[in-house]
Design a protein around this nucleic acid. Sequence first.
DNA 1: CGGGATCCGTGCCGATACTG
DNA 2: CAGTATCGGCACGGATCCCG
Lengths: 117, 117
Amino acid sequence: MQNFHHTNDCPIRDILTRIGEKWPMLVLVTLHANGTMRFSDIQKSIADISQRMLTVTLRNLETDGLVSRKVYPEVPPRVEYKLTVTGQSLIPHIDALVGWALEHMPDILSRRKSRTA
Amino acid sequence: MQNFHHTNDCPIRDILTRIGEKWPMLVLVTLHANGTMRFSDIQKSIADISQRMLTVTLRNLETDGLVSRKVYPEVPPRVEYKLTVTGQSLIPHIDALVGWALEHMPDILSRRKSRTA
DNA sequence: CGGGATCCGTGCCGATACTG
DNA sequence: CAGTATCGGCACGGATCCCG
């Protein structure tokens, strides 16, 4: 019997610590779809994200090297975000999950409803 | 500017409701690696999952149609779980994420440490 | 404009005890 | 063996206020 889910050093647990959170995937695909974006543009694109959570999410993605941040020393300030090469390398896998969801979620959602009823 | 992350009917949010949780992906890859498994075997394979969380996770995956459950009317009871066809169709995408993690997580983890310091 | 700091509620998840 | 039931902690994330 295979058992490779060590508590430490498990790739699935590693990746869940980031993409398992609520906003990172949405931010990544938004940046991929639009290229370089300002903070306020991302916020408008993901209508219901709070200012705080967008800041936190972008900081985490920047720390992980998936998103780059460029500050223009202007008044009023301008800050632009875009995917790094590493960030772009994750996009195809997210797209694959999205494709899977588009194909299977209708059935799954109906199953959840009938189980609730 | 593209904006396709509707609060409702968004495939990314849909899929996060399941794989964003702590255990489902681990259970899916465990079942894929070992085929049909008994409850106690899954629990031994994922050492630190509690009995409660394994039960909850399996019930959710069963409701979603990703895992099938078969009860043998014996004493002591025996229950076997395995992936459905739909569940198997998700495996390649999880594997892709795992492959990405194996390639990039060492760098990401070192970035997180240096940011903490 | 793009944050930072703080407070706080909700729900995921863990621990424990009990059962057919 | 394979659950179910209950309690409670804790961290994710929302709301609000303030700043350069």
